[in-house]
């Protein structure tokens, strides 16, 4: 018993002096001293990473244009996390697991169902979620402004986004939030290496005709390309754990962002159908057609 108490004292654990009570009862009074906690915090990295994730029509769904031509059918359609956002989240989680960050915060904005997407992110391993609830259409500029406001609240050292969403294919938000924050940016990242000492992220970017390597001072914005990593699947225990993780709610108004709409969708149509081709019967016929009919070789 004495030995046990000594050990606990060594760990700076304060135990009330009721030695007659069973040990299991005593342990309920354990208090961790501030001194201990401070030391602990000094050793751990305290960088936070924020990841923006978007809820989109699942990439495997064949989309249908609405009959009124005002958009694409999203009712009764499977929705998922945008694949590029999954890659962004995966990269943030890997950085945290390597000990270079302490917390990963996932952010999503849009209707209330975005919470489902956030839960998926929490099940993958994000620590917390933030949902900015908005029912109107959010264009990239508004999303970038909301993210900027959240960055000012959360103060992350890195902001990850997918390079684009597979619904509107805009490829803008990361660049825009980086501009609004005056942070350095690296888009289309296929490799990210963090240097904790120098506070620099070295990023390989997939540019036309090759790879470009940039070195960014932190804090910075990175948007992820397809080849950065293979996102993990959420395991059942983690899905259960995610249910108790916190999702904080905001409205754009609370973040002092006006929803700006300087774009108007006139119509959404199906792309022109390709006219039916011909089946050729031999290689000779194919070469002949390509040469003399299509004039492409």
């Amino acid at each position: 018993m004495n030995r046990m108490l000594m050990l606990l004292n060594l760990l700076e654990i304060i135990i009330p002096k009721r030695t007659s009570a069973p040990l299991s009862y005593q342990t309920r009074f354990i208090v961790i001293s501030p001194k201990w906690r401070a030391r602990d915090d000094n050793q751990a990295s305290t960088m936070k990473i924020m990841v923006a994730i978007k809820r989109v029509v699942d990439y495997a769904v064949k989309i249908r244009v609405k009959p009124d031509k005002m958009g694409v059918e999203t009712n009764n359609v499977k929705m998922s996390m945008n694949p590029f956002c999954e890659i962004a989240l995966e990269e943030a989680l890997r950085i945290k697991e390597s000990g270079l960050a302490s917390e990963v915060v996932a952010v999503s904005m849009g209707p209330s169902q975005c919470v489902d997407t956030l839960r998926t992110g929490l099940a993958m391993g994000a620590d917390r979620g933030i949902h900015v609830e908005a029912t109107s259409v959010l264009y990239s500029l508004t999303v970038a402004k909301i993210l900027k406001s959240l960055v000012e609240v959360e103060k992350p050292g890195l902001l990850f986004l997918g390079k684009q969403a597979i619904d509107d294919d805009c490829n803008q938000t990361g660049q825009m939030v980086a501009g609004l924050l005056s942070w350095p940016q690296a888009t289309f990242a296929s490799k990210v290496v963090l240097d904790k000492e120098k506070q620099v992220a070295t990023v390989d970017r997939e540019v036309d005709g090759g790879l470009e390597t940039l070195s960014l001072d932190l804090p910075a914005v990175i948007t992820t390309d397809l080849r950065l990593n293979q996102p993990r699947y959420a395991t059942l225990p983690n899905i259960m754990k995610a249910k108790s993780k916190v999702i904080k709610k905001y409205t754009p108004q609370e973040l002092n962002v006006d929803i700006k709409s300087d774009l108007e969708v006139i119509q959404v149509t199906e792309p022109p159908k390709r006219k039916a081709g011909v089946i050729v019967s031999s290689v000779d016929e194919l070469i002949d057609k390509l040469k003399n009919e299509a004039h492409v070789i």
Binding site: V57, K62, I63, V65, V72, I166, D167, D168, D169, C170, N171, Q172, K260, S261, D262, L263, E264, V265, I266, Q267, V268, T269, E270, P271
Partner: peptide, 29 residues
Amino acid sequence: TDVIEISGSSQFVRPIYAGNALCTVRYTG
């Protein structure tokens, strides 16, 4: 982004859903 047709000084066509639909947008700003 990715304008494939200019139909007016502020009206444009661009592909969405990787080209599975075409969206005509007007810039009003």
